[in-house]
């Protein structure tokens, strides 16, 4: 009787460990990479090559005093970090790391990931609202507006992939790229996806919600300690997720010669992550009005063009 529950619990724990571990690793990866791009070594004291730096950071955040703003909305304030993190978990459930290496190969896999990611917007709004600060609220709203605006081109750019593969199931999508990665014929969709995914994860150059040079404080201003750690880790989980989808949908997933499929999957995913971090090191921040304008007036039409082209070629 307890068998399916035990398996469920075990799977959930393994997944949780993987997600947290990946997020923590990404913290190190980003700081090291940014450092090197900025002519400095990055973390190099804690652990070999600074690898234990994320551990030190998380430990530090855990032992910090838990500060609650005076008139904050307590239940929401406490709930928001969890709301940010749980969708990431849920999305990882359907991610295949190799043929058959997946927790639950839903036949609506891609749609499930997209659906679950949109719930994270609620977390930002809750964080901004619960902080009881005019500026945090505006910051939260702005972040939400940004994420909603970029969801549309994100989803549309992936529809081209779904059309070409004829399925929402991630395993099928990878299989459909056996001869040619979708990034080649759908290069437009690929570019739109990369830009939209960067904006969805609030990463530079779209990191207005976190920009210190912005007057309006970010939605997580009032958060410190473990709660902040949750937002932090959630952001990195989404980066990994976005890169993983790029790999699966456009770069042929786990396909590749000689090496085992999992390795190829991770190599490609980390290549995309490298690119995302590179963007952060290089580009200035875009302004809110320019960002929204770009999303609606440039990315959206381009993604529609992409769908049209895919449809056209399927027809021919």
């Amino acid at each position: 009787m307890g068998q399916p529950y035990l398996r469920l619990a075990a799977a959930a724990l393994i997944l949780a460990a993987f997600v947290l571990g990946t997020a923590a690793f990404l913290v190190w990866f980003e700081r090291k990479l940014l450092g090197r791009m900025q002519v400095r070594p990055g973390p190099n004291r804690v652990g070999p090559g600074g690898l234990l730096q994320p551990v030190a950071d998380i430990l530090k955040l855990t032992v910090k005093e838990d500060i609650l703003p005076e008139h904050a909305d307590r239940p929401l304030f406490r709930l928001a970090p969890l709301m940010a993190f749980v969708p990431a978990f849920a999305a990882f459930v359907v991610l295949p790391f190799g043929p058959g290496l997946v927790s639950a190969d839903l036949n609506i896999g891609l749609l499930w990931i997209l659906a679950v990611s949109t719930v994270s917007v609620l977390a930002l709004i809750a964080a901004g609202w619960a902080s009881n600060s005019k500026y945090a609220l505006l910051g939260g709203m702005r972040a939400a507006a940004q994420m909603i605006s970029y969801e549309v081109p994100l989803v549309l750019s992936l529809i081209g992939v779904v059309l070409a593969a004829g399925s929402l199931r991630l395993g099928r999508i990878v299989a459909a790229q056996a001869h040619l990665w979708f990034a080649v014929p759908q290069v437009l969709g690929f570019i739109v996806y990369l830009i939209a995914a960067t904006a969805e994860s609030n990463r530079s150059p779209f990191d207005l919600p976190e920009g210190e040079s912005e007057l309006v404080a970010g939605f997580h201003t009032e958060y410190s300690g473990v709660r902040f750690a949750f937002f932090f880790l959630a952001e990195y989980s989404y980066v990994f997720l976005a890169a993983a989808i790029a790999t699966l949908a456009f770069l042929g997933g786990w396909s590749g010669p000689f090496l085992p499929p999992v390795v190829w999957f991770l190599v490609k995913t980390y290549a995309v992550i490298f690119f995302i971090i590179w963007l952060r090191a290089t580009l200035p921040r875009i302004r809110i009005d320019q960002l929204l304008s770009f999303g609606w007036k440039v990315l959206l039409p381009l993604s529609l063009v992409n769908i049209f082209l895919v449809g056209l070629f399927r027809f021919i």
Binding site: I108, A115, T118, V119, L122, I125, M141, I148, E151
Partner: peptide, 21 residues
């Protein structure tokens, strides 16, 4: 499952956000 996913995407992800705004 399609309707379920769309329910999450649209209702929880968009309509709720609209209410909140």
């Amino acid at each position: 499952e399609f309707v379920g996913a769309v329910q999450i995407l649209i209702y929880a992800g968009a309509v709720a956000v609209l209410f909140l705004f």
